[in-house]
Nucleic acid binder design. Structure first.
Lengths: 187, 187
DNA sequence: CCATACTTTCAGTAATTTCTGAAAGGTAGG
DNA sequence: CCTACCTTTCAGAAATTACTGAAAGTATGG
């Protein structure tokens, strides 16, 4: 009974989901995330159900290998979860449901992978330009002073950003809402 | 006189700058910015001086065409500026000096290019799933309800984020410092 | 400890992105 | 309106990144 009535609805649902998935994939690309990975996450998020690798590969028209690798990467980012069912061998995957939590995970991971190494490099650069490394008089040279100043500003900016992100992460869902309210009131 | 003393210093300065440039280029890639574009910006930022296209291409070992295209893209992002000198034909380029301002520009541009289109798509998806589009009973189907709920959460999240960014942008340098202090005190 | 039912890996290939260099396009001064 | 000097464009080449599919790996129930 349900099927006869539901068919056009399911079609429409599918269309809407596909639209979202495609757009999300495009956005991912411009943020350095490969399109398929973004699409898989969009799919799991939008259907709001656990899906097997087979269902994912069929729905997105991708190979088994591709699905497997990207599902694993998404698990490593912590934004989808593996999901065993007793009495079944097949594994299912589902997206975290809370958007705030999803973005916390992404921010935390990006900080660790990308901000931290840059901070380390800046520290190294500053060491290379210390008086002890290039001589006392030399450190006063205009070009050196300029570069040191720029390194300092960037370091300060990134340290402050990191602290802010730390707060976000530490406080996850309720914290984020709180932060936002504060921000909006502050101006 | 200066040159004899300064030579090793300049070498060391160059090394430190190159280290920063290379790392910044790597980070750019993982954020969806091509390496050369990130490197050019890193160079202009770190030397804190206007450079000509020729100087850029020589320093980074890239072709004239590549330099030209990426310098133009950076200008479009608003994070470097063209710089004519009276009595000279050659153009010079320099980075914005304020890190907070640089990131404001980047955030504003990304919002416009990437967040806004996604928001538009979400609105479209929700329309496709309204009662008027699929029938009153159908709208109650579990799968439809779930997807609508997810679309709604994502839209809310992005709208709030956009508002926050708006504030950042509108307030630029002093505003950002203010925001940060508030945030850090809030917990 | 085998058969089954899945998952992961990875070498080769396809698709995409980025870069080059030469030609065409400005433009300012003469 | 030329010449000298720079900048931009873009077709083709190079480099990078993503994907496939088949073989190898793993775990579970009998």
């Amino acid at each position: 009974m349900t099927t006869e009535i539901a068919e056009p609805v399911n079609q429409q649902l599918r269309l809407a989901q596909d639209l979202f998935i495609r757009r999300w994939g495009e956005m991912g690309q411009t943020w350095g995330i490969n399109r398929t990975m973004a699409e898989i996450h969009a799919l799991l998020y939008i259907v709001a159900l656990p899906l097997s690798a087979d269902e994912v590969m069929e729905r997105l028209n991708i190979s088994r290998g591709n699905a497997s690798m990207n599902l694993r990467a998404l698990c490593e980012w912590g934004i989808i979860r593996r999901n065993h069912r007793r009495g079944e061998r097949r594994e299912y995957f589902e997206s975290l449901s809370d958007v705030w939590e999803i973005f916390s995970m992404i921010i935390a991971e990006r900080k660790r992978r990308e901000m931290d190494p840059v901070l380390e490099t800046i520290r190294q650069c500053r060491e290379m330009l210390e008086e002890s490394a290039i001589g006392k008089g030399a450190a006063k040279e205009e070009a050196v002073r300029m570069t040191r100043q720029r390194l300092g500003s960037m370091e300060e900016f990134m340290l402050v950003s990191n602290k802010v992100f730390q707060q976000f992460i530490g406080n996850a869902r309720s914290g984020l809402h709180k932060v936002v309210k504060l921000l909006l009131k502050a101006f």
